[in-house]
């Protein structure tokens, strides 16, 4: 028994040690397709306009079309729910002390359905290196579990790996050596420049050839308490930092399939009480050639929406 325990422990320890050694050089630059890299680089720049939201935000607003003289960035990311939106804003304003004049927040019935799988609710992959912040740590613990949160707290290098798939890791790993042999900062800056050029907007150019069959039953969307609480926190944060808030909703193909009564009522009341403008494009541009899939518009719609918003908001 002692021999078995000793050998097994030794073997497991050596595997874990190798795992740590292998991952130690991995840092946020390795998984640099994330906007977290840009976030790191944004310390010294205040924002005239920040766009936050899910993939529907990321693929919908072209900062370069809004105003090239202002610092505008589209921080929308696939799967971003209300907790991610709030924490991102908190990180920029409170932790980095950046000034943000205007916030354009993409909201829809999907943003308040975090636990039902419509959105991933919390993009912890943007915050692996900020787990010292109690609020970020709490959110990670809440949405990913205590073991996962404490593991990442100790060893954030594992984060990128845990979130990404193995093939992505294999593709990214050579960057580790390349970065070390040349200059880590060069690689880092090169990747940051990609976002510096597009200002965070990612176009969807190809319309889906054949759209998947949409559910025959009407999808009923509820408002979840967790997401509403994070939305409230975000609004309070905007007030605290004098950030002008606008809300907008992107078009959805066959919009009548999505039953958003609860959300509509909630946003209507909120906007009335807080004098916030809400630009609703849910049922606009109903042309399937302009959609990538049922819930994501292509670049064609993104340009139309951006132009329309440009005439309605003050930056």
């Amino acid at each position: 028994m002692k021999q078995f325990l000793f050998k097994t422990s030794l073997w497991i320890a050596s595997v874990l040690l190798c795992f740590i050694v292998l991952l130690y050089p991995v840092n946020k630059e390795v998984f640099a397709d994330k906007k977290a890299v840009y976030l790191e680089n944004a310390h010294s720049k205040d924002f005239d306009l920040l766009i936050l939201g899910s993939s529907r935000a990321e693929h919908s607003i072209l900062p370069t079309l809004l105003d090239t003289t202002k610092n505008i960035f589209n921080m929308g990311e696939e799967g971003n729910g209300m907790p991610s939106n709030y924490i991102m804003l908190k990180l920029l304003t409170e932790n980095y002390g950046l000034q943000i004049k205007t916030l354009l927040l993409e909201v829809d019935e999907f943003s308040f359905n975090g636990s039902t799988g419509f959105s991933r609710q919390f993009r912890d992959d943007n915050f692996y290196y900020h787990l010292n912040d109690p609020e970020i740590y709490d959110a990670t613990k809440r949405y990913r579990g205590p073991v996962y949160a404490s593991l990442l707290h100790i060893f954030p290098q594992a984060g990128g790996l845990l979130y990404n798939d193995f093939s992505q890791f294999l593709k990214a790993y050579p960057f580790v050596f390349k970065a070390y042999s040349q200059s880590l900062q060069d690689t880092y800056n090169k990747l940051v420049n990609v976002y510096a050029f597009s200002k965070g907007y990612v176009p969807l150019t190809d319309p889906a050839k054949v759209l998947p069959v949409q559910s025959k039953t009407r999808q009923h969307h509820i408002l979840e308490a967790d997401d509403v609480a994070y939305f409230d926190k975000l609004v309070r944060l905007c007030k605290k930092h004098n950030i002008k808030l606008y809300l907008y909703r992107m078009p959805i193909l066959n919009c009548e399939h999505e039953d958003s009564q609860e959300f509509d009522q909630f946003i209507h009341n909120f906007c009335q009480q807080n004098e916030v403008l809400f630009f609703d494009y849910k049922c606009s541009y109903q042309n399937s050639n302009w959609f990538h899939d049922y819930t994501h518009a292509t670049d064609t719609i993104a340009r139309m929406v951006t132009k329309d918003l440009k005439s309605k908001i003050s930056i």
Binding site: V15, C18, L22, R144, Y148, L161, L162, F166, F169
Partner: peptide, 16 residues
């Protein structure tokens, strides 16, 4: 072989 298997398992283990 054991080592490679173990590493691949850890790398593929979907914690989320």
């Amino acid at each position: 072989v054991y080592f490679v298997f173990a590493m691949l398992i850890i790398f593929h283990f979907n914690f989320i």
